[in-house]
Simulated assay, not measured.
Amino acid sequence: MDGPGQLEMISLFLCGDVMTGRGIDQVLPHPVPPQLHEEYVRDARDYVALAETRNGPIRVPIGFDTLWGDALAVLEQAAPDVRLINLETSITTSEDWWPDKGIHYRMHPANAACLTAARIHCCALANNHVLDWGYRGLRETLTTLRDLGIATAGLGEDLEVARRPAVLEAGAKGRVIVFSFGERGSGIPPEWAAAADMPGVDFLPDLSPATARRIGERVAAVKRSRDVVVASIHWGGNWGYEVSGQQRAFAHALIEEAGVDLIHGHSSHHPRGIEVHQGRLILYGCGDFLNDYEGIERYRDFRHDLALMYLASVAPANGQLASLRMIPMRLRQLRPHRASRQDAEWLCGILDRESRPLGTRVRLEDDGALVLRAEHG
């Protein structure tokens, strides 16, 4: 992963699921009504209570910047050109909850200021919670983000808008083009797919070579010299480290044939293995970055309290990865704190184990950051 000097690189902050609905919305200044339609939990404040039982009282409301904990200082120091997240919630006061889903996330539009507090540039929205509160919720989500000046991809009032990529300027260095896709295996109902006259998400019908070629046609229509193209994909299940052969083949096809330079994968609630293919970064699963799972015991062996900030440097001249640093965080009192050395070592061991079959290694630096090393690509 050697390349030109750092000044010529486009730097990106990426993370996985930012789930600011439900319990997190309840601790922000303007919560929606807390009633839920889940089988076991009927009040979103119960998730706050679980977190307090584990790690102590939370002074409510917490500030929009406070929600990001130690991440803001990391972002200030890294000063990435682009900040991209998978926003996994509807931003709405709609009461039109989707009846065939067991879990519904929403955040009050007034609480969306938490995104500007972290200076988020773009939200990938093709995921399995963005339509939890119906089409009214979809429209309010898009309106709120547009009013805040935050770019979106993967969701729209019709198919044309849902397929429209976000174009993010990185000054004289070039541009970052973000496409956002979602597939059924991540829990997205097929009926959420946008159509010519229907709002919805940019839904992948499958992970076939033909689908990759069609994406390539869309990339070719917008990509120009010194553009870095990101495919942000919500795919696969929530738990487990396996990267399917189908996912891997699709990621390779996007790079080899579709002109994509970076795969930003998410849906898993914990980080998965990392690959570098033909010099380009593939994040198969970034894990959650913000959630309200703090007091939930199920799946704790996966350490869903640990999160990563992915700081990638990419050469705009050819789309190749120059470096990837990952900052381990631990979610405590519903916000991220720098992880202890012990937690960072645990996370490094897991990522190195899962990445090794993909041709990369992960090591822990003295400053607590994890660094990716490609053995071949």
Score class of each variant (00 low, 15 high):
236 G>V: 03
181 F>H: 06
198 M>F: 14
183 E>F: 01
222 V>N: 00
175 R>Y: 07
198 M>E: 15
233 I>P: 09
201 V>D: 10
203 F>L: 12
180 S>E: 11
184 R>C: 13
202 D>Y: 04
171 G>R: 07
199 P>G: 07
185 G>C: 06
173 K>F: 01
224 R>Q: 05
204 L>R: 00
192 W>G: 09
183 E>D: 13
174 G>S: 13
221 A>N: 05
222 V>R: 07
211 T>V: 14
185 G>F: 00
223 K>G: 10
223 K>A: 12
184 R>H: 13
240 G>N: 03
219 V>K: 01
171 G>Y: 03
203 F>D: 14
172 A>I: 00
211 T>S: 14
224 R>S: 12
239 W>E: 07
191 E>H: 14
207 L>I: 11
212 A>D: 07
186 S>C: 12
220 A>E: 07
175 R>K: 12
209 P>N: 14
172 A>V: 09
212 A>W: 04
213 R>T: 10
174 G>A: 13
203 F>Y: 15
214 R>K: 12
190 P>N: 10
217 E>W: 08
213 R>G: 08
214 R>V: 13
188 I>H: 00
226 R>C: 10
201 V>Y: 02
199 P>I: 09
234 H>F: 04
216 G>Q: 00
205 P>H: 05
199 P>Q: 14
195 A>G: 15
200 G>K: 06
180 S>P: 04
187 G>D: 05
201 V>Q: 11
243 V>W: 02
241 Y>D: 11
171 G>C: 02
178 V>K: 05
184 R>L: 05
176 V>N: 11
209 P>E: 13
208 S>M: 12
210 A>L: 11
176 V>G: 05
228 V>K: 03
210 A>V: 14
186 S>E: 11
212 A>C: 02
194 A>P: 03
179 F>K: 04
242 E>Q: 10
222 V>C: 00
179 F>E: 09
196 A>Y: 10
191 E>A: 15
193 A>L: 15
212 A>G: 06
228 V>M: 07
241 Y>V: 13
208 S>N: 14
212 A>T: 01
231 A>Y: 12
218 R>M: 12
171 G>M: 03
